[in-house]
């Protein structure tokens, strides 16, 4: 499954860590970090290899509740996280950061909504709490199955960029998924 995401498997990231570690003459620590990340990846993949295949919506931010939302697209890091957790990205576009109106999001009907916490404080909906407040209070959006089923999880927005934080983001989502009752 991993090969389906443009982003994974993580060979390029591991290569980069290896190169940097060699440049700074700490090759052993680089190896240790790679081993650690690989182990975390494998652990998640093993844990979520069951018969549940949820779809995830990764909501990065929006200028305002009504505006089209910036989402984590198809095969980017968001898709990789979804894949690690035994599911797939509800947004299938090739674009890394598509914008989509709420009708499109309602139509995508994700199993789980990932509300990202973006620490830049530029838009009111950068904040994960503001996203959750909108999802649960808007008369229409609150009718989505994911919202009605309480399947909203919070993840650091930085994990939606390709970096070592992507795996930490996947772990953050995994921790909350364990407490949820997935359909």
């Amino acid at each position: 499954m991993a090969a389906e995401t443009r982003f994974g498997p993580w060979t390029s990231l591991y290569k980069e860590i290896e190169d940097l570690a060699r440049i700074f003459d700490v090759a052993d620590r680089g190896e240790a970090l790679i081993a650690d990340l690989k182990q975390r990846e494998a652990a998640l993949r093993a844990e979520f290899s069951g018969d549940k295949h949820p779809t995830f919506l990764f909501w990065f931010s929006s200028p305002s509740p009504a505006d089209d939302a910036y989402l984590g697209g198809g095969n980017g890091p968001s898709g990789y996280i979804a894949d690690l957790l035994g599911g797939s990205n509800a947004i299938k576009t090739e674009a890394d950061w598509p914008t989509l109106g709420w009708e499109g999001i309602l139509a995508a009907d994700p199993t789980v909504i990932v509300a990202s916490q973006v620490d830049r404080n530029r838009w009111e909906l950068d904040n994960a709490d503001a996203k959750i407040a909108y999802l649960t209070s808007d008369p229409t959006v609150s009718q989505m199955d994911a919202v009605k089923g309480g399947r909203i999880v919070v993840m650091s927005g930085a994990a939606m960029n390709p970096s070592i934080r992507t795996i930490y983001g996947a772990e953050e989502v995994a921790k909350q998924l364990r407490t949820l009752d997935l359909p």
Binding site: I91, T93, P98, T99, L100, G101
Partner: peptide, 9 residues
């Protein structure tokens, strides 16, 4: 503008 690209405006 809504239908020309799927899941994108």
């Amino acid at each position: 503008s809504r239908v020309v690209a799927t899941q994108q405006t």
